[in-house]
Design a protein around this nucleic acid. Structure first.
Lengths: 138, 138
DNA sequence: TATTGTTATACTCTATAACTATA
DNA sequence: TATAGTTATAGAGTATAACAATA
């Protein structure tokens, strides 16, 4: 590895560490764990079945059962059996859940803070590089 | 927020998600949790007291006690009382621990993989932008 | 018989509070 | 009395295996 690549690897580690820590804190502000906030974030874009959530969150279905149960007990999400296939439970975010999710987003200042440190041209540059690094065309 | 900034925020989220998942898997290959692998990584640069570890890992001292105890039980780290102040325990990585840490590093292909997608000029560019975003001079 | 989700269980991570040993 | 670390405890995240309900 070249010296540049080495430095870059360390910078990535530091960035991810700071990002994760900031997200944890933002979730905590709203009284949630990071995992719960993440689930709520996914539901904010529309309802999901338990199985879909497990896929999107890359975790086991039994884990989703527990996460959803805790959020449901607090009135942040609701489970509704699918009328067409009663094995399936559709989970949706409640109005209260939407409020809490909004609080997390507002508390999570990391991205806008950091992005604000860049000029718009630099933002475009970084976006292109991240796109490339993610294997997508920029 | 501009459209570019919005896209960038999403790209950061995706990047961090992929990075974390890859690190989890790499640790698992070596039979470790991410937290354990992280602790081992810190020790690979030299021994630390329990308190220093708690600061570096941004977690409570009682948590470090447990993490270290599990790693010690597997022979990956060693606790030695400081001769000058016997309240202090210095933790160091063992040869076996160093091997396991090496296995994690090798399994964690994410950074080199992603960095390898960039030309050296792009690597310099990304490094500069990450430096700027971290509040350091590039 | 296959699929969706839950329950039971076990292990780890994490923090708080109370404690021990040392300074 | 103050500091370093541990112990006890509790709640949450996570997975595996066994299970119930439905298809």
């Amino acid at each position: 590895m070249t010296e540049v690549a080495d430095a870059l690897a360390q910078q990535m580690w530091d960035f991810v560490f700071a990002y994760d820590a900031a997200y944890d804190r933002a979730a905590q502000v709203a009284g949630l764990s990071a995992a719960q906030a993440c689930l709520l974030e996914h539901l904010s874009r529309g309802s999901r079945s338990m199985g879909e959530l497990a896929l999107e969150l890359s975790c086991d279905a039994s884990n989703v059962t527990q996460l959803v149960s805790r959020l449901e007990a607090r009135g942040l999400v609701a489970r509704v059996p699918d009328p067409d296939d009663r094995r399936i439970k559709r989970v949706s975010i409640t109005p209260t859940g939407r409020d809490v999710r909004g609080a997390v987003r507002r508390a999570f200042e990391f991205p806008s803070e950091r992005i604000g440190m860049l000029t718009e041209q630099e933002q475009r540059q970084l976006s292109g590089l991240l796109g490339k690094v993610s294997g997508r065309a920029s």
